[in-house]
Amino acid sequence: MSSLDTTNAVARRPFPGRRARFGDVLLQGVAGLAALGATFLVGLIVYKIVQGSKLSLSTFGLGFVTHIAWNPVAGHLDFGAGAFLFGTAVTSVGALILATPLALAVALFLSELSPNWLRGPVTALVETLAAIPSVLIGLWGILVLGPFLLNHVDPALHSALGFIPLFGPATYASNVFTAIVVLTIMILPIIASISRELFLGVPGELKEGALALGLTRWEMVRGVVFPYARGGVAAAMILGFGRAIGEAIAVQQVIGGFTGTHLLWNLFSPGDTIGSKIAANYQGSQTGLELSSLVYLALILLVFSLIVNVVAQVIVRRSARRLGTSA
């Protein structure tokens, strides 16, 4: 807390001594209403989702979360989230593993290494990548990326790493790995642009000091920039992770889709995530129980996202505290 900080009371009324003006009251009213509305909306969404999943909740209970089954045919009705939860975890963790080093490299290049004339255009392009609608990336995934991976990348990975069950033989262009790459492309700009801001925020004196001590650029980055930005980078990763968990359309376009009756350990086989399953089947469900089970999937996704958010905040706070004590 510095002496420049003002107390709340003063901040709310910029001209002490004068009565609150109509405009200020209105502003407070409008802003407050908007904030209240947003909170109310979240509450409403949670309420509707819980209500919608009631039938499935009472039929399957909490066992639904890990139960591996999805049979919407009357007489065979059996639903569970297990396979889709697994698919969501595999795709989003996979995307995070691929995207993080790439994003950090992009951010480092833009903040520390790039020549000045290149910095602007490349930054703008990376941010444009984040603005491409997911349905377009999905379409590109179907038409270009999927066949390319199938013909060139998947077989190479299979022959090099085939001893690990995850890298089995590839038969289809629509598979979990294609979805991972699509998600990587989608979350890379998020992690990269936040990290770039963080790296730029590292005080110049620290960096110059490190260089003056005779450290190489890489040693400076490792010893000064990374530790300084660690908490923020972790939060950026989790933001990207959150995006990957929830992405439905682009994933559904390239992941193939399967029935959810078993776990798929081969990255090169088609799969499904919670988001893609909801997107695929919400419109056509034939029974109330299937619809309710799809809403139950949404509930799981909501809880999952909430946990991710909370974890991100905890990490940011903890690293801020650590930074505070060390400085």
Binding site: W70, N71, P72, V73, A74, H76, T259
Partner: peptide
């Protein structure tokens, strides 16, 4: 398997 707009393929 059975008949439906979606089935467990």
């Amino acid at each position: 398997v059975g008949t439906g707009t979606a089935v467990a393929w």
